[in-house]
Amino acid sequence: MKLQKMKKRRWGDLGWAYLMIAPTILGLLVLNIYPVISTIYLSFTKTGDFGASSFTGIGNYTKMFKDPEVLQATWNTFRYTIGVVPVGVLLALFFAVLLNANIKGKTLFRTIYFLPVVSTPVAVAMVWRWLYNTEFGLLNYLLSLFGAGPVGWLTTSRYAMFSLIVVGIWSTLGYNMVLLLAGLQEIPKTFYEAADIDGASPIRKFFFITLPLVSPTLFFVLVLTFISSLQMFDFIYMMVDRGNVAMGSVQTLVFLFYKYAFQIYDRGYASAIVVFLLAIILAITALQMHLQKKWVHYD
């Protein structure tokens, strides 16, 4: 009797479990799982006129690895990431450590640094475009005071990527800083008190207490920044106009994907590009997971 009741209840639990995951799982199937498979399939097809597609095997991939535009975009994606990740994360850590000290106005500073995170990227891109403007931009005016410039910040291949990296760092600093600050606040105060008794210098305290104990958060921030930098699109779309000679030197894989998928309508080729990006992201994340054993300290 009791057993029967328990059995009934067990079946009831199962029913509820499937009902409760149903919306999420159905949504994932339709909106995510099927699309991944579909995109991978599309990457093996050739998009003809009128959107009709035919199977070509690895045709898109062989074409892609010989296409100078794709190779350059891959290089650009890496350049942007290498520019944003180390400097951006180190700066975020630097400011998080400063804010973690016992200072007044912590909340105000935190709010200010977080402001770009809540701002529309399109609006942010617009004012940076204006600051970078070759003829009337504030930056070139400041340079001219020192007798330098004018520099084509967004219009020359030499500087465009650098300019985008600066905006990339500026706009994500607050986000990373807030994550790191939360990690820093979890470090028990007693560790620092013990170090004070031993007369440890602030530098020693940073390297022997702060850094190892914040390393799990730092690792998370690194992975996150890597992944988001590898997918850069918004700022290029907004700051580098079509026909700008610097476009070739800044367009990333995601931008190229957008161009082929939704402007040129070559969906097969676009799919191959985005599958290539997927492979890059998975490889880098796997590498990071492997390397973390060497430097991330879990309790």
Partner: peptide, 25 residues
């Protein structure tokens, strides 16, 4: 419940792949 790990893997897959991969479909 049966297949719990299988369903949860679907959640993890969505999180791991770059969002652009879903866009065309």
């Amino acid at each position: 419940f049966p297949l719990k790990n299988f369903f949860f893997a679907m959640v993890l897959i969505q999180m791991m792949v770059p969002g652009q991969i879903f866009l065309i479909p």
